[in-house]
Amino acid sequence: MTGQGLLQLALYVVALVLLVKPLGAYMAAVFQGERTFMAPLLGPVERLIYRLSGVDPARESDWKPYAFGALLVNLLGALAVYALQRLQGFLPLNPQGLAAVSPDSSFNTAVSFATNTNWQGYAGEATMSYLTQMLGLAVQNFLSAASGIAVLIALTRGFTRREAGQIGNFWVDFTRSTLYVLLPLSFLLAVVLSAQGVVQSFAPYQQATLVEPVVIQVPATNADGTPQLDASGAAVTKDQTVTEQTLPLGPAASQVAIKQLGTNGGGFFNVNSAHPFENPTPLSNFLEMLAILLIPAALCYTFGSMVNDRRQGWALLAAMLVIFLPLLVGAFAAEQAGNPRFEALGVDQAASAMQPGGNMEGKETRFGIANSALWATATTAASNGSVNAMHDSFTPLGGLVPMWLMQLGEVVFGGVGSGLYGMLMFAVIAVFIAGLMVGRTPEYLGKKIEAYEVKMAAVVLLVPCVAVLLGTAVAVMTPAATTSVANPGVHGFSEILYAFSSAGNNNGSAFAGLSANTPFYNFALGIAMWVSRYWLMIPVLAIAGSLAAKRATAVTAGTLPTHTPLFVTLLVITVLLVGALTFLPALALGPIVEHLQLHGSH
């Protein structure tokens, strides 16, 4: 590891923590209905939305209508994205004349964007019209993120309310998340990103003449268009000199801003934020990385404010950082250490003034090792899934870090809203375990945690694990799935495990090397994304309703304090133990074996 690299990681973490309090306090004010500095501008818009949609903002509901609203808006969003993809050939803002997307790919993408996963089996610039990107994908980036925040706010009210039937009005929380939080921040970031060179245009793709023509090998074809084969049946290739390249354009800056802030992660272009039109400079890279964790981190403070004990929010943030920081340093160290096989060949992998050193395969030279490792760790700690380097090219241990962060349930920051409500489920389990140890009914934030809450929390914890492990197991036994693997063997297993870990935890990043745009993966990953989003939201809201109806328990000498280092340690151990016990066997078959093979003598 280089000192300069560590300094950059430290700068990032300090900037993030400094922004937690101001943004967290602002969001707490927004969700408690207090007047904020944005009210003069956005208040009339908010009231107009309620009037037009017939919503009475003062009317609250119990958890069932709240959950129904969240599910309905997501289902309608998915249907809209599906229809846009299927009909894009007939719709405007399609200068490249891109055809309709296939039904299975449209299903996968619709579910992916409605669930805040943003797994992409398609290549954006070759598949989606500008209209589909803007009206379908970018809109879902806002709505799916707002749904996650709304569910968290409802759960928070479950802790704060006493003997109440209601947990809030979904439409109000949903509107305020979008209008007061996501839209202003996205607007600001989009302007800065476009100033840095991120494209924002409706112009058709441009042809550019290459400064230096390149020769590539392409398959040779017969007169009837079929591939030419040699005597052994292998495809014949021929040289082709390329003198021009196509530069894809589009309204990218506006979509990139919300894809980062909303922990969505779906790139406008195929290679996501490794593309120079999506992430052109070190400054745009820093801001995009900051945007990944900004809202999930600040929501910890919002939670503390809303439960009238900010120490609770800081404790949850501390638990996230305790897991995040060692894994970040671990990924950086693994990538900076490089490939031992290259050392044997005499390749210089040492960092110097002339090169970043380490494992630079699949990484952008303008970002280097530290910022690639930082992005990979942040994007998988949060359920973002955007990438600025190819995780498939990471060293085995460097690739294990993002995979395991997803498998921990996307609770280390996690998605906007969903990360914190996931961590709160672990907190429920942690106080339950502590209660078992001392023989006392567990409590959290003054509410007794009883059998119903523990059952629901167990569902929240177990559903993603089942989606990941069952999906992976089915895939490795299905020929239609294994033929998509470009690297058979241990690494191929890692590619499949990564894909289901990503979909089954609503992350959306890809390990690459897996041709996932096939009917099998489009359906299997689509199902994994659906269940790991909505089958978690429902029990979380059910817990919110159950907690809100309870009376507050007085704090006594026997109450376990949940803002102390002891509880942070207990929470971290609970998260890590569940993650380790569930996924260590699978990881041992993938990245751990690959690491041993890489460093073994044979």
């Binding site: 599910l71 299975d104 159950s546």
Partner: peptide, 30 residues
């Protein structure tokens, strides 16, 4: 393929609704 998409979506909606009802019923029993 459109039919398959429809069937899978309906199955997911049905299963999600079943979980919703189960959560509600379990709460009634607690």
């Amino acid at each position: 393929m459109e039919i398959l998409v429809l069937l899978v979506t309906l199955a997911l909606c049905g299963a999600t609704w079943a979980l919703f009802r189960l959560c509600d019923r379990l709460r009634g029993q607690s």
